Amino acid sequence: MIIKINGKYYKIKKIEKNPNGKYTITTENGKKYEFKNVKIFSEEELK
């Protein structure tokens, strides 16, 4: 799965839903981001 952050695309390693309704997304390079609204892309959609 792929996520778009600030115009760049990252591969997703893990998605966790937090009790506060936000999502914590861990990218393949180990960085964590927290979002309220998340749009996930499949690799097929990006081709």
Rank of each mutant, 00 (worst) to 15 (best):
N6A: 13
N6E: 08
G30I: 00
K13W: 10
K13A: 14
G7R: 04
V38A: 08
K39C: 15
I40R: 03
P19W: 07
K47G: 13
N6L: 10
N18R: 07
N29A: 08
G7Y: 02
Y23V: 08
K17S: 05
I3Q: 00
Y23H: 03
G7S: 05
Y9W: 14
N37G: 06
F41S: 05
E43R: 02
N18E: 09
E34V: 14
Y33D: 00
N18M: 14
K11E: 03
T27Q: 01
S42Q: 12
N18P: 02
Y23S: 02
V38F: 09
G30M: 02
I25R: 00
N29G: 14
I2Q: 06
E28R: 07
N29T: 10
K47P: 09
Y10M: 12
E45V: 06
E44S: 10
E16L: 06
N6V: 03
K17P: 04
V38W: 03
N6R: 12
I3N: 00
I5Q: 01
K36N: 11
I2F: 15
I12T: 02
K13R: 11
N20F: 05
I25C: 02
K17Y: 10
E28C: 15
E28K: 07
N29Q: 09
I12S: 00
K11R: 14
V38Y: 04
G21M: 02
G30A: 01
K32V: 15
Y33P: 00
I2G: 03
N20Y: 06
S42L: 14
I2D: 02
P19K: 11
K8N: 07
T26N: 02
N20Q: 06
T24F: 07
N37S: 13
Y23T: 05
K32I: 15
S42R: 09
K8R: 13
G7N: 10
T27G: 04
T27V: 12
L46C: 15
N29L: 06
Y23F: 14
S42E: 08
N20L: 05
E28Q: 12
T27S: 03
K14H: 15
I5W: 07
K13C: 13
I2W: 15
E43K: 04
F41G: 04
G30Q: 01
K32R: 13
E28Y: 13
M1F: 14
I25T: 00
I40W: 15
E45M: 09
K14P: 00
M1E: 04
Y33I: 06
K22V: 14
N29C: 13
I12A: 03
L46N: 09
K14M: 11
K47L: 11
T27L: 15
G21T: 01
I40Q: 05
K8F: 09
G7W: 02
K13T: 11
K8A: 09
E43H: 04
G30L: 02
V38C: 15
S42A: 09
E45Y: 05
Y23K: 01
M1K: 07
